[in-house]
Computed example of a mutant assay.
Amino acid sequence: MTDLDSERTHNLETVRKFFDLMHRKDIEAWGDLSAEDGRILVFYPPAGFGNSIDGKAAILGPSEASSVISNPSIRS
């Protein structure tokens, strides 16, 4: 296996884990996948929410990310 194949395999496993954790609404483990300077773009934010969630602390904290992920039916 080449370095490129290994990196691709790692990336695919991370993406699968990302969606699995989001589906299970395991916000803490899901947020742990984020880099310290990670950013979630929210293309259609509900009223009162920003269009991005910036930084791991905001992603993991009692924030917009957990509200939107745990209740995807929120609409503006």
Score class of each variant (00 low, 15 high):
Ser6Thr: 14
Asp54Arg: 10
Trp30His: 07
Leu60Tyr: 01
Leu60Gly: 01
Thr14Gln: 13
Ser73Trp: 04
Leu33Ala: 01
Lys56Leu: 12
Arg16Met: 06
Asn11Thr: 09
His23Val: 06
Ser67Asp: 11
Trp30Asp: 04
Gly48Asn: 08
Leu4Ala: 14
Ser66Phe: 09
Gly61Tyr: 02
Thr14Trp: 06
Gly55Met: 04
Ser76Gln: 10
Pro46Cys: 08
Arg8Gly: 00
Ile53Lys: 02
Lys56Tyr: 05
Ser73Tyr: 09
Asp26Pro: 03
Asn51Cys: 08
Asp32Val: 00
Arg24Ala: 12
Glu13Leu: 11
Gly55His: 03
Ile40Met: 12
Ser67Gln: 15
Thr14Gly: 06
Glu7Cys: 08
Asp26Cys: 02
Ser34Leu: 10
Gly31Glu: 05
Ser34Glu: 10
Arg24Gln: 10
Leu21His: 04
Ser70His: 09
Glu64Trp: 05
His10Val: 10
Asn51His: 12
Leu21Val: 00
Arg24Gly: 01
Ser6Gly: 08
Asp20His: 05
Ser67His: 11
Lys17Met: 13
Arg16Val: 10
Ser6Cys: 03
Arg16Ile: 06
Asp3Phe: 10
Ser66Ala: 14
Asp3Tyr: 03
Glu13Pro: 00
Tyr44Asn: 15
Ser63Tyr: 03
Ile59Trp: 02
Ala35His: 12
Tyr44Trp: 14
Met22Asp: 01
Arg16Tyr: 07
Ser34Arg: 06
Ala65Asp: 07
Ser70Thr: 13
Gly50Tyr: 10
Glu36Ile: 09
Leu4Phe: 04
Leu12Phe: 09
Phe18Tyr: 11
Val15Gln: 00
Asp32Gln: 13
Asp26Phe: 01
Ile40Gly: 04
Pro46Thr: 05
Lys56Phe: 08
Val15Thr: 00
Asp3Trp: 09
